[in-house]
């Protein structure tokens, strides 16, 4: 009953995934520190952060692989820890490293997925793999890294899940394979109307695929906003003097020896706010927030 209510609420509010005060510790190490997160339905959200930021832990909590120490998380209105089968029925998951069975061929993987997931659409997954020219009778352990990642994505898409959780699927791929993967993902999300949360520590990879950005650092959400807003609301200077109305976010090493400071500037700031600043790229926005997460704000610099 609680699950049904949660699902209805999620559908009414258009929220595919949400976390509130979500915490996870491993011994003394805090992996997630009171994370608040909202992923709107139909969005492709980039979950960006350095290694050890908590990206994988967040996704694992959503997959019910890890039990949270506090707070709540809901996937399409379902708490994955309390109602695991219900939650996993709504989730397509691509693990961090391409997980393939060495002794099985590609088609065996689809057969296995079908035997495990009642709603698995093997034909759909097969079609996607055919489009990519991946032979179904090829042994999975002979696939290239890109092909193995595409197989993982095809399996996740074959579940026809409402929410796709992709845990750094691009990390081990070459640039061409990364581009292909992202193209397939964008195409699938658009055509299926699903929601994707794509974690990565490479900002340029997710820039073209995502419409929303979540920056995670040291287990905390440092920024959660639409991608366009992230670009427009931040400016960059090479000095410590703030633009009018601007709030320093963080300072980091720019190209050469210059030290750059990222400023958050309100949309209604006067013309003076823009005059002395440069527009920030998405990578610079991320760098600024990560620097802030480490406690190196512009005000603390020399």
């Amino acid at each position: 009953m609680a699950t049904d209510a949660g699902v209805l609420l999620a559908q009414a509010t258009g929220i595919a995934l949400q976390a509130h005060a979500l915490s996870k510790r491993f011994g003394r190490k805090v992996a997630l520190d009171a994370v608040d997160l909202t992923v709107p339905a139909g969005s492709v959200t980039a979950l960006v952060g350095p290694n050890g930021a908590g990206k994988t832990t967040l996704i694992r909590v959503c997959m019910a692989f890890e039990r949270p120490n506090g707070g709540m998380v809901e996937v399409d209105g379902v708490d994955p820890w309390k109602h695991r089968s219900e939650a996993l029925r709504r989730v397509g998951y691509v693990p961090q490293t391409p997980a393939v069975y060495r002794g099985l061929d590609v088609d065996d993987h689809l057969a296995m997925a079908r035997s495990l997931h009642s709603g698995f659409d093997a034909e759909y997954a097969r079609k996607r793999l055919n489009q990519l020219g991946i032979p179904l009778d090829q042994r999975a352990d002979t696939l290239s890294g890109g092909q193995a990642a595409q197989l993982g994505l095809a399996i996740a898409l074959g579940t026809r899940a409402k929410v796709l959780l992709l845990d750094e699927p691009l990390a081990n791929l070459d640039p061409l394979a990364r581009r292909e993967f992202i193209q397939v993902l964008i195409d699938a999300v658009k055509s299926d109307g699903s929601t994707a949360l794509l974690s990565s520590h490479i900002v340029t990879d997710v820039e073209e695929a995502c419409d929303r950005l979540v920056i995670l650092g040291a287990g905390k959400v440092l920024l959660d906003c639409p991608l366009e807003e992230a670009r427009q609301a931040h400016r960059l200077t090479d000095s410590k003097s703030p633009p009018p109305g601007g709030v320093a976010v963080g300072s980091f090493a720019g190209k050469g020896l210059t030290r750059l400071t990222l400023w958050r500037v309100p949309a209604d700031a006067g013309d003076g706010a823009w005059a002395a600043t440069e527009p920030a790229s998405l990578e610079e926005v991320v760098l600024g927030y990560l620097a802030a997460g480490r406690g190196t704000t512009g005000l603390q610099l020399n």
């Binding site: 029925r89 998951y93 693990p95 997980a99 069975y101 035997s115 495990l116 997931h117 993982g152 399996i155």
Partner: peptide, 20 residues
């Protein structure tokens, strides 16, 4: 070999997975 997350992410019931 890291295939358990793939299988367990697909299967609502790990016990059914193990039973097979």
């Amino acid at each position: 070999q890291g295939t358990a997350p793939l299988s367990w992410g697909l299967s609502g019931s790990r016990r059914r997975w193990l039973l097979g």
